Amino acid sequence: MESRSEVTQLLCQLKDGQDEVYEKLYPLIYEELRKLAYSHMRRQSPDHTLSKTELVHEAYLKMIDQSKINFNDRGHFLAIASRCMRQILIDYARKKTAKKRGGQKKDLTYIDELFKAQNQKTQELLDIDAALNRLEKLNSRLSKVVEMRFFGEMTIQETANALEVSESTVKRDWMKARGWLYKELKARFEVE
């Protein structure tokens, strides 16, 4: 518990512009970032070339590279870290399917089914990202709830604290967002 209050104190120092605090913060938050990375990576195909450790480092570097992010507390910091991890994985998926790299066309020297399964997982991630971007335009908070609950595996309470709303609001938002995403993704798959 002491490290949680220390994390909050360090985040307050960051708000005051003390950038050297990142070096003290990283060891305290590292294990939680690894748990976030694990939850993100377990949804990826088994042969994904980005490791959990690399995802943690990429996300952390992306966060400290921002000019001014105001972290309210530990939960808010983890929510932003989760979003960064999601963006990194989406960028990775986009690059993997980019037309300039041959897109989804693969040599037939490998087992076709393996590639088919891998491409489906990559496409699912891109579809979810596109749906979340549409949801964000309609209702930003619903999109944030999905990021925190689904990608960040944050609890209702942690999500409520990070968004500064009540737990019952998060529960309602979570139900609305899941329903909206279900309809959106179901319609996408029925078209194909």
Rank of each mutant, 00 (worst) to 15 (best):
M1P: 07
E2I: 05
R4L: 09
R4P: 01
V7S: 02
V7Y: 00
L10E: 01
L10W: 00
Q13K: 09
L14E: 05
K15L: 04
D16T: 07
G17Y: 11
G17V: 09
E20G: 13
E20H: 14
V21A: 00
V21E: 00
Y22D: 07
K24N: 14
K24H: 09
L28R: 04
I29H: 04
I29A: 09
E31N: 07
E32K: 15
L33M: 14
L33A: 04
L33K: 06
L36C: 10
L36K: 08
S39F: 09
Q44D: 02
Q44S: 11
Q44A: 05
P46N: 08
H48N: 14
H48T: 10
T49P: 09
T49I: 10
L50E: 08
S51A: 06
E58F: 12
Y60T: 09
L61V: 07
M63E: 07
M63T: 13
I64T: 11
D65T: 15
K68V: 07
F71K: 02
F71S: 06
N72L: 13
A79G: 08
A79R: 07
A81P: 05
A81D: 12
R83Y: 13
M85W: 01
Q87L: 08
I88M: 05
D91K: 14
D91F: 14
R94S: 07
K95S: 12
K96H: 05
A98L: 05
R101P: 00
R101L: 02
G102Q: 02
K105V: 15
K106Q: 07
D107I: 03
L108C: 04
E113H: 07
A117I: 10
A117W: 04
Q118S: 15
Q123I: 10
L126K: 07
D127H: 11
A130I: 04
L135F: 00
E136D: 02
E136I: 01
L138Q: 00
N139C: 01
R141P: 00
S143C: 03
S143D: 01
K144P: 00
V146H: 01
V146A: 02
E147R: 00
E147P: 00
R149K: 15
R149N: 11
M154L: 11
T155S: 14
Q157L: 12
Q157D: 09
E158Y: 01
T159K: 07
T159W: 06
N161S: 13
N161G: 09
L163Y: 02
L163F: 02
E164T: 10
E164H: 08
E164A: 03
E164D: 12
V165N: 01
E167G: 14
E167M: 13
S168N: 14
S168Q: 15
S168A: 15
T169N: 11
K171D: 13
K171I: 15
R172V: 12
W174R: 06
W174C: 11
K176C: 10
A177D: 06
G179K: 08
K183R: 14
E184D: 14
K186F: 02
E190P: 00
E192F: 10
E192M: 11
E192R: 11
